[in-house]
Nucleic acid binder design. Structure first.
Length: 428
RNA sequence: GCCGGGGUAGCUCAGCGGUAGAGCGCCGGGCUGUUAACCCGGUGGUCGGGGGUUCGAAUCCCCUCCCCGGCGCCA
């Protein structure tokens, strides 16, 4: 049985647990072995005066991270972590671990070298569990709201956005690239399924040196036929709130282990997130003494100032067209701005979603491609979508790792994912 | 790509021109209740790599590699 279950059994119940040695203290009369499994930890007490000789010997030989199994009776004890412990009647050493290289106090660089071992830590295990629940809650939301899950390609011929750097792949002599967004493929799929979403890895070869960028990240994207920007924003908010709610309902222990302030998350569990326009954001920033002019992009510093105004995630909409991508639809009432939106997480976490209504008019889209200095031939099939039954449509991309980072209260995105690809790190 | 900080024992760091150090870990011993246990003893080094200055370099200079924090870009 799992350690969690054993801890909750009535006094005197027989229990059998297996897992890995988390802590061990040999005091002479008794050996205290704290056993860790996927659900938590339990203290196993091997008493030299009562336990069988083989059990004592096995406990003596067990080192940190050895795989062990123990059985005996459960006894409440305030001195034990979790309030109860297992008094061992048997103890087996399945596999004795060599001297485990992580003792505590190591630096980040070293810990990343032994990431394959570090991911066992209680803290990271809590993050994986939270991540699981975030993904589950979002999938459940989409499933119950009529969205089709689709599987777009990762190997692609060209960029979605002109500027971002791509990882090049040799595709049997032709140049191919790792996808940085499934958006164009989702746009193609709305003509058959209308409301589609996908969860894929996306790749960006920007040499970013920040705590919120990965070269390989998990991208949840949606695209919906007939939807206007506001419709897509509502989905973005409901999806985010569903993830937060799921974690608050199922992962309170993990949040507590991570010392995450859950009060700040409660406010984000309802999807009524506030929304300001880019114009209003500039006004707010100017009032705060930030030197910024209309037309400037909102950088990390600006985002941080804005997040101080809100306790929940919030939207910024209607950006100047020249700081956003060519496929975003020009606002019919204001040709200098686009119908695009960002969702920024509070507490300084910043952008977790970027979306827009897409330009659905062939001529306008073609003109925008040329205006950005891009080659229309690279977008031939994408332009085709505007020639055969074009409809208004909107969608967004959500950074799963960033969402997990914010929900779990992590200070670096690398800990939102088991094997992060960032900086120049590819091992392990 | 730009700005700043740093590579010394397995790990975290001190030393910054004159014999290579500490704490933790690890190994051995002790302890009947530990919570990052504690006490005693032991173990531990191409001072990131290359070149130079010097009687002498971890220390000063040059080149190079790697890591960390921040910016830009974005999710």
């Amino acid at each position: 049985m799992k350690t969690r279950e054993a801890l909750r059994m009535p006094e005197g119940s027989e229990a059998r647990v297996r897992g890995w040695v988390y802590r061990k203290r040999d005091l002479g009369g008794k050996i205290f072995v704290v056993v860790r499994d996927s659900e938590g930890i339990i203290q196993v007490v091997v008493d030299r005066s009562t336990a069988p000789r083989e059990a004592v010997q096995a406990a003596e030989e067990a080192t940190i991270e050895s795989a062990v199994e123990a059985w005996g009776r459960v006894a409440p004890d305030p001195r034990a972590p979790g309030g109860a412990e297992l008094r061992a009647e048997g103890f087996v050493l399945h596999s004795r671990a060599e001297d485990f290289p992580i003792k505590g106090g190591e630096g980040v660089d070293y810990l990343l070298d032994v990431r394959h071992l570090w991911i066992r830590s209680r803290r990271l295990t809590a993050v994986w569990r939270i991540r699981h629940t975030v993904l589950k809650a979002m999938r459940e939301y989409l499933e119950s709201n009529g969205w089709w899950e689709v599987s777009p390609p990762i190997l692609t011929q060209s960029a979605v956005e002109g500027g971002a750097t791509l990882f090049e792949v040799n595709f049997f002599g032709k140049k191919a690239y790792l996808s940085q967004s499934a958006q164009f493929y989702l746009e193609a799929l709305i003509y058959s399924l209308e409301r589609v979403w996908s969860l894929t890895t996306s790749f960006r070869a920007e040499r970013s040196r920040t705590r919120r960028h990965l070269y390989e990240y998990w991208h949840l994207e949606t695209e919906e036929a007939w939807a206007r920007m506001r419709d897509s924003m509502r989905v973005a908010a409901e999806l985010t709130a569903a993830a937060v709610r799921g974690v608050l309902e199922e992962r309170l222990e993990e949040l507590s282990l991570l010392k995450r302030d859950t009060e700040r998350l409660e406010a984000a569990a309802r999807p009524d997130y506030p929304s300001i326009t880019y114009d209003e954001a500039i006004e707010l920033l100017k009032r705060r003494g930030v030197s910024i002019e209309w037309g400037d992009d909102l950088g990390a510093d600006e985002e941080r100032v804005l997040t101080e105004y809100f306790d929940t995630p919030f939207f910024v909409t209607h950006f100047p067209k020249h700081i956003k991508s060519f496929y975003m639809k020009i606002d019919p009432g204001r040709p200098e701005v686009v119908l695009g939106f960002d969702l920024l997480a509070p507490e300084g976490y910043g952008e977790i979603i970027g979306g827009s209504e897409r330009e659905d008019r062939y001529e306008v889209l073609l003109a925008r491609i040329r205006e950005e200095g891009l080659d229309p031939r690279d977008y031939e099939w994408y332009l085709d979508l505007r020639r055969y039954g074009s409809v208004p449509h909107s969608g967004f991309g959500l950074g799963v790792d960033r969402l997990v980072m914010w929900v779990a209260g992590l200070d670096h995105i690398r800990d939102s994912i088991p094997f992060p690809r960032f900086r120049d790190r590819i091992y392990p």
